[in-house]
Computed example of a mutant assay.
Amino acid sequence: MSQENKLEKTNRVNLLFDFYETLLTEKQQTFLKYYFHDDFSLGEIAGEFEISRQAVYEHIKRAEEMLEAYEMKLGLLQKHEERCALLAKLQEVLMESDISSLHKETAKDLLQQVEQL
């Protein structure tokens, strides 16, 4: 796996983890945090928990599969990404628009409220 693909995978797992962390078992949460957040190797995690590297790998793989399954069912990450894209487009339109300064301020206030959602 190339470095770019590994980074993309890590970013995706971290985003999915942010949305679905509480749906995972405590052990799955711990292993994912060690591996993806803290950048521990399989061997380091195995040593910490006194289990084999293969067992760690299987726990992490199963947790990743669970995150993807939750995303398939609930789509929270996809919805988040869609909202972010719409928000970026709104910002772009707002900055390019030739509207009065009063309306522009109102639009900026609305944009800030939307961002807080």
Rank of each mutant, 00 (worst) to 15 (best):
H37V: 07
S97N: 13
S101I: 07
H59T: 14
E26W: 10
E96Q: 12
G47I: 03
I99W: 01
F19L: 02
Y70A: 01
M95V: 09
E65Q: 13
D109A: 09
V114M: 09
D98C: 04
H59Y: 13
Q112N: 10
L15A: 14
E64L: 07
S41P: 05
F40T: 05
I45M: 05
N14I: 05
L32A: 02
Q91R: 12
S41C: 03
L67D: 00
L86Q: 15
Y35F: 15
K79R: 15
E115M: 09
H37N: 14
M95D: 15
R12D: 02
L110T: 00
A46I: 04
N14W: 00
M1L: 06
I60V: 14
L102H: 11
A63D: 00
K108S: 08
N11K: 12
Y35A: 00
R12Q: 14
L32T: 01
Q112P: 00
L42S: 05
G43W: 01
S97D: 11
F49S: 01
M66Q: 14
M95I: 10
L90M: 14
D38F: 11
V93E: 15
N11I: 10
H80A: 14
I51D: 03
L16T: 02
L24V: 02
E44C: 02
E58C: 05
G47Q: 10
K89Q: 13
E48N: 07
A107I: 03
V13F: 03
E48T: 08
V93S: 07
E44H: 03
T10Q: 13
G75W: 02
H80I: 00
M66K: 12
N5F: 13
D38S: 11
Q29D: 02
V114H: 01
F36L: 02
L102T: 13
H103C: 06
E115P: 01
L77V: 08
S41L: 04
L94P: 10
K89C: 06
N5E: 14
I51K: 07
Q54G: 03
H37D: 09
Q28R: 06
E48F: 09
K6W: 07
F40N: 09
D39N: 15
A63P: 02
S101A: 13
R83A: 08
T22S: 10
F36T: 00
F19Y: 05
T30N: 09
K108E: 15
N14T: 10
L24I: 02
I45H: 02
K9M: 07
L110M: 06
A63M: 03
Y35C: 01
K33Y: 12
Q91G: 15
C84P: 00
Y35M: 01
A88V: 11
E64C: 15
N14Y: 01
Q113H: 08
E50R: 09
S101N: 12
I99T: 07
S101T: 07
L77N: 09
D18T: 10
Q112A: 10
H59V: 12
K89A: 08
Q28C: 04
L77H: 11
E68L: 06
F17S: 03
D109I: 01
L86F: 14
E8M: 06
N14Q: 11
G75H: 08
K61N: 10
